[in-house]
């Protein structure tokens, strides 16, 4: 179940990253919005990981190298614009992918059909913020551009075919680029230049290679379960 693991880990890891905004978001309204998105993703992760095995064991007891999420979702939150850039790249991808999966006959079709509506809202949220930050003040424009550029190198991996997902990945990648380009232009931003994957290990998350911040994130995510196995409240 390579595909369930890849999609499930994407959702789980991004959910945790967004959850890190709790108590830190610029305004209370946005904190609730990000937490809502995180909870949507957590729900998707639970369904997907349950297709593979015990969801708690998979989330809390796997080592870093066993995670199959793309490297984009594990990137630290940075400032708010950085998080929005990550949301724009990922939710646009996830919406297009789920839309295709919903129309197929894979085991993910029922989940994808339900989740695509949630993800459409995540993408809408990201686009609205991209528009306001890009076309806002010089400072917000600068930060939005910085976030988009910093994460650009992790977007190539999104279109590496995932075994078990019968999708035209090249067409998915083209549509993604068209949508992101359109959103950025409306926000007076330009599509970053440069390669969409690094020469080193960037773009190998699906093979279990992750970036340095991911280890720290996992330590925080897993420590409670590892310290108190089976704890509940």
């Amino acid at each position: 179940m390579t595909a369930a693991l890849a999609l499930g880990d994407d959702a789980l890891v991004l959910s945790h990253r967004l959850g890190e905004w709790a108590g830190h978001a610029p305004v209370l309204e946005e904190e609730v919005a990000l937490a809502n998105i995180a909870l949507d993703l957590l729900g998707q992760a639970r369904v997907l990981l349950s297709l593979v095995g015990d969801e708690d064991e998979l989330a809390y007891l796997r080592e870093e190298r066993a995670f199959r999420n793309c490297q984009l979702v594990e990137q630290p939150n940075g400032d708010f614009a950085h998080t929005i850039a990550r949301q724009l790249y990922f939710s646009t991808y996830q919406e297009l992918l789920y839309d295709r999966l919903a129309r197929g006959d894979s085991p993910f079709a029922p989940l994808a059909a339900k989740a695509v509506k949630e993800v459409a809202y995540h993408r809408d949220h990201a686009e609205h913020w991209t528009l306001r930050l890009g076309d806002g003040t010089p400072e917000s424009h600068k930060r939005m551009r910085r976030g988009l550029e910093a994460l650009w190198g992790y977007t190539g991996e999104l279109f590496e075919p995932i075994e078990g997902c019968e999708v035209d990945w090249a067409a998915l990648g083209e549509e993604w680029l068209a949508r992101v380009t359109s959103a950025l232009h409306r926000a007076t931003l330009t599509v970053p230049e440069g390669p969409r994957r690094g020469a080193w290990a960037a773009g190998a998350g699906r093979q279990g290679l992750h970036t340095e911040p991911f280890g720290r994130m996992l330590a925080e995510m897993q420590h409670l379960h590892r310290s108190h196995p089976g704890a509940s409240w």
């Binding site: 305004v27 209370l28 309204e29 946005e30 609730v32 919005a33 809502n36 809408d124 949220h125 609205h128 306001r132």
Partner: peptide, 20 residues
């Protein structure tokens, strides 16, 4: 009530705060 930069964002925050 809530704080938002404009009507479109207010609508979205309202969705998250009051209809979840």
């Amino acid at each position: 009530s809530l704080h938002a930069p404009d009507a479109e964002m207010a609508l979205r925050s309202a969705r998250d705060l009051y209809t979840r």
